[in-house]
Amino acid sequence: MNITKSFNRSLWAFHFNSGSCNGCEIEIVATLTPRYDPERFGIKLVGSPKHADLLLVTGPVVKKMRPRLLRVYEQIPDPKVVMCVGACGISGGPFYDSYNLDGPIDDVIPVDVYVPGCPPRPEGIIFGVVRALQKLERLQGELP
């Protein structure tokens, strides 16, 4: 429940790496640092899924990480939005066939926003976050 619109909370994101190559991780951190600085708008990475509104998932989901991804997803309180960053989480990307992958991500958890690119540019990630924010507001409106 919002008291007024201006009392709306900031967007906090939890980042989960499901076996990615690190490229997306770097770009996510680069997004948060001074050149792009989305922390101006209260967008920041948090260390616990329990504090998060947005789950950033990267990587093609290695078999060992599948149960952990599900656990992290369950720990995020509703309403939540899942954002898949990078080509390999969307369709496998260069890792399109493997014996040790359980992806793509939307095969494991429902994904709301896809950010393609290998890795996506920080501008792309910010654009995705804006889309995620719109969806989150819609979901918040639907809550009783």
């Binding site: 790496n17 076996g19 890792f95 066939d97 040790n100």
Partner: peptide
């Protein structure tokens, strides 16, 4: 936890594809 079996994939692809892997 991030074993994507890249070497195994590479043995099924040609080097022009592997440079992107």
């Amino acid at each position: 936890q991030a074993h994507r079996a890249i070497e195994w994939m590479g043995m099924r692809r040609n080097p022009v594809q592997i440079v992107h892997l």
